[in-house]
Every structure is written in C-alpha cells, then in structure tokens.
Design a protein around this nucleic acid. Structure first.
Lengths: 153, 153
DNA sequence: CTAGATGCAAACTGTTTGCTCCGGT
DNA sequence: ACCGGAGCAAACAGTTTGCATCTAG
C-alpha cells in the first residue's frame, strides 16, 4: 500500500474524523490518544480506539494535527499550530506549551556540527508545575516511575 | 519498596551489572535495551531481558548511564557523559550526538515564560544522515512508519 | 458503485513485575 | 548470613493490524 506522505489518497470526511478533529481542537492541553478517545465517545459511543489511532496518525501525516513524541513512551497530540516548545512536569506528567519562539539558530548550529540534513528540532523542558513544585514529594515518585530528570538528553 | 532516587541502597557489582556497563560503554551510538541485551548475551548467555531493563533503569537513576527518551516510543541509552544533544535520522532511525554545548539560556528563557521550576531540557534534531540524505526515498518510508517530521514539537 | 473508513478483536512491541532461588559483601 | 540481585514468565500499556462490513463521494 504505497502512499505518498504529502499528497496521499483522497481523504474522506467521515463522522468520526470530524469528531476527532473537534476533540483535538477543543481539548485543553495536550491530550493522549486515550484522552481523545474518551472525549469523542461522548458523541460517538461506538467509535473504536483503533479508529482514533488510525485517524490521529493520518491527520498528523497530513499536518492537520500535531503528534508529540517526547519523554515518556506515550504520545500526545494537539491541534496543529505553529511549532512551539513544551514543558513536562516531572511530578504529574502534564505537558504545557512554552511561549518561546522556535530558535532557528539551533538548527543552524546543528547543521554545522553534523553532516545531517537538518529538517527540524524538538525541545522539551523538564521541571515541576505550580501544583507539584511545592510538595517535591512527587519528584521522587516520578524518579521511581523512571521519569528522566537530567537535562540535555 | 521505598527507594531514594539520589542515594538509594548500596549497589552490588554483579557479573551482569558489570557486563551491562561494559556493553553500554562499548556500544557505538545509542543502543536500545534490546541492542544491549544482544551484546551482553555474548558474555552471559543466560541474562534475562528483565535484568537488562532493571539495571539500565537503576544505573540511569544513579546517573551512571544516560536514558534517552525522545521521538519514537523506544528508549535508548548511552554511557553517561556530560549532557549533549542528539540528531535522529528520519530515514533509518539512528541517533547520534550533536556537538553543541547545552544552552543554559534556553532554560532561562523557559523559566521566565512559564511558572514551572525548570530543572532541565532535552533537545533533539531531526534530519537525514549522510547515508539516507542522498536517496530521499526513506523519508517517505519514515513518514509512513509514522515518524514525525516537523520541528518544534 | 467503490475505494476508503469503521468496529472489533487479536496481535505486537517495549517495558515492568511477582516470585523464588542465587550470590556479593 | 543477609539482603540486594538474577532469571523466568506472566502481566502491562500503548499502539497497530486483519478482516468483514459500512459509507462518503
């Protein structure tokens, strides 16, 4: 099943596709596939998780939603927006946007430091959110769960 | 089994632990747990994958090896070295180091842009390695496999 | 009408864990 | 001798896939 990533076969706008899109857009933060599944089931109780994954994948391939693959093994998605960076709370795992403009200079630097054709970059900050930052307890819990804690990975 | 992430109980230097360490250090690039498993079995044919994971986790908790969790859902490890950045080839998936010093300014910027206690960051570049950069074919393959391709995730 | 999409369930991959026996210190 | 560690297998979480059936265009 050869398929060109850019143009692909024609997409059909099905009920579930529309619902998925709506869910991703209305979801605050950066929902996981499962979060989205739960939301969409409010409108389409019989939608299957497979459909959610399939569509999230397709939509992200078409640049309509954005797939986030950083830290942890679980993916998160968000409505496609201009590139931006994220913070991940080491305590509770939540992910939020960081309002810093993408630094083209980083890619320039990487370009001259490697022999790769650099096409992009991902930057994620690690730390403690307001809620978790006060207790500190969760950091250890996080560390025990195996969440990374050092910089510059 | 409460366990302090920083100090922990005393570590025992077992045969398999030593082998694991050796494997991580001698492995070129950034091996996955499974790569390491294969290497170590050359010396300890009966070591179990569980042991590999357990130790990699422990060693990384103690800052002896470095766990990389970026892109893809599979983890990679390397011998602990000063923090550094990585490039991931969108064609073949290989991961290499990028020789750029960690940018403290990024964390400073994130600190003022959020209300998180920022403790670190991870930066990964995406692109095509020398081998894949020429064909371009693999990019589409990568896209089909679902590898991300846009920046600033 | 028909290629593409869905639902469902089974399969997979990578990782974690319970348990019992083993071996560093 | 003690207690952390090893081996093994079963359990998990997240994601993917095969197949028969449906549906948007």
């Amino acid at each position: 099943m050869r398929r060109n990533a850019e143009t692909g076969p024609k997409l059909r706008m099905t009920r579930q596709r529309r619902a998925l899109l709506k869910a991703v857009q209305q979801a605050t933060g950066h929902p996981t596939a499962d979060d989205i599944y739960r939301i969409v089931r409010r409108w389409l109780p019989h939608i299957s998780l497979g459909t959610v994954y399939r569509n999230l994948e397709i939509l992200s391939r078409h640049g309509i939603v954005h797939k986030i693959e950083l830290g942890s093994t679980q993916r998160r998605f968000d409505a496609k927006r201009p590139s931006h960076y994220h913070v991940r709370c080491l305590g509770c795992g939540r992910v939020e946007d960081v309002d810093i403009r993408p630094q083209a200079r980083l890619e320039r630097a990487a370009r001259s430091a490697t022999n790769y054709k650099i096409t992009g970059h991902r930057l994620e900050f690690l730390g403690l959110c307001g809620r978790c930052g006060t207790t500190d307890e969760q950091v250890r819990k996080g560390a025990e769960r195996g969440e990374a804690k050092q910089a510059g990975a």
